[in-house]
Design a protein around this nucleic acid. Structure first.
Lengths: 229, 229
DNA sequence: GACGATTTAGACAAGAGTGTCTAAATTTGT
DNA sequence: ACAAATTTAGACACTCTTGTCTAAATCGTC
């Protein structure tokens, strides 16, 4: 009776390492091949474990899939909240700061491995697991959107922006900032760094044209001259 | 030797009807189950034909899949160009007209059966058939985006909008107008009519805040007077 | 009504994948 | 080094699916 080990992990270390390795490889294969097309033997090979070990850890293919999605959701959420924490609450250069935020959000949350995988799994298998993806929706969009909207509300309150509905503004911000990346996302590809920057720059400029405080007629001319450069 | 029949359809009518029915059902099943998960027997049952008939028409599963994507691409393109033709070139009420256009685009091209199916197939199987989806990209986005951009360019030339880059503006227009529908799209759902209208309305308003002519400026009145001449 | 072509149902072989089982090998903690 | 637990390789039964084949039924046309 060894009661001194941590309660939820009975075997010590290599065990967890394998569990992680399995979930990681499974994510890769499920994304590449789809649930039906994914092959347990292939996952095992990619993880460097035997097939039996997968069954020992996860029971069956469906449970493994659920574990993968839960894992990705958790990691993606963590990444998004970490990035939201870098939102420019007191911007020096509003345009530059918002572009920086948009680029970080894209690079660290949307275009990275976890983001790409989670997005694809939601798109491909979302309808097959309604409860699972309802859970994702609550934990993910349900919590991140309000968080982002609150930051924009704060910018508006601080006099940096003119916004009626912060929730709408937040969604439109993301829509604008990713406007040029849609086709790439569709095909599951990763945009190059310069494409991300370009899309973010164009998106933020339009966003500020719509919601930015215009100081005077002269400065808005300045702004558009800058934009066309 | 009956040379009087049309050259590409050897058996007369019921034949083509079955071919269509097969492709339609295949689209449904491929979308619901993915390529690997799709079952020829199920497609046959859904199409109301025997399995052998599918093999007679399309050879094998992969060729059937290609036929489905080609068919969807063609129909979607037709729909998009038909909708682009309704773009408000000489708007009376610019905001209302752009909202109408956005709603039509969504209802007739993006949220309808073909649009939903094509989007899902691209997302799920795009990486597996690079040539096929390269073809889609050329025929689809490669032709529709410039067409939409050209319409915005025309509005700008006519003095209705202030746009630097019509291509960017076109992509941002779509991004804004669909900003509130992203989560629904992700999960493969269809937004309700009022959600489409709401998203379009919010999107167009922001779009016009960024790109619309502000009436107070004297030069813009001049420009639109010039345009109407 | 008869003819030719198409469609159908069902059986079939071949292959692939899941999940189980077992005994041997390996790892881990002490 | 020992003992317990875990991992492994391989075989296995079972199911499902694809694609082919055949003979009978049906359809469309003249």
């Amino acid at each position: 009776m060894k009661l001194h080990v941590s309660p939820d992990i009975f075997p010590p270390r290599g065990h967890e390492a394998k569990r992680l390795s399995i979930v990681d490889s499974a994510a890769t294969v499920f994304c590449r091949e789809g649930f039906a097309g994914a092959n347990i033997d292939l996952i095992a090979a990619e993880a460097g474990v035997s097939r039996q070990t997968i069954y020992n850890h996860h029971g069956d293919k469906e449970k493994l899939f659920v574990a993968v999605v839960r894992d990705l959701t958790e990691r993606c959420n963590a990444g998004i909240f970490a990035t939201i924490a870098t939102f420019p609450d007191q911007p020096g250069d509003l345009e530059a700061d918002l572009i920086g935020f948009a680029v970080r959000l894209n690079q660290n949350c949307i275009c990275n491995r976890d983001g790409k995988f989670l997005r694809k799994l939601i798109q491909t298998e979302g309808e097959r697991y309604p409860e699972l993806f309802a859970e994702w929706r609550e934990q993910g969009p349900g919590r991140t959107w309000p968080a982002i909207a609150a930051r924009f509300a704060r910018l508006a309150y601080g006099g940096y922006l003119t916004i009626e509905d912060p929730d709408v503004a937040a969604r439109q911000f993301l829509g604008l900032v990713n406007a040029e990346l849609q086709t790439t996302f569709m095909l599951g590809g990763s945009p190059r760094e310069d494409e991300v920057l370009q899309s973010a720059t164009n998106g933020v400029r339009t966003f500020l044209r719509a919601f930015g405080k215009r100081r005077s007629a002269a400065s808005s001319e300045k702004q558009s001259a800058l934009a066309s450069a």
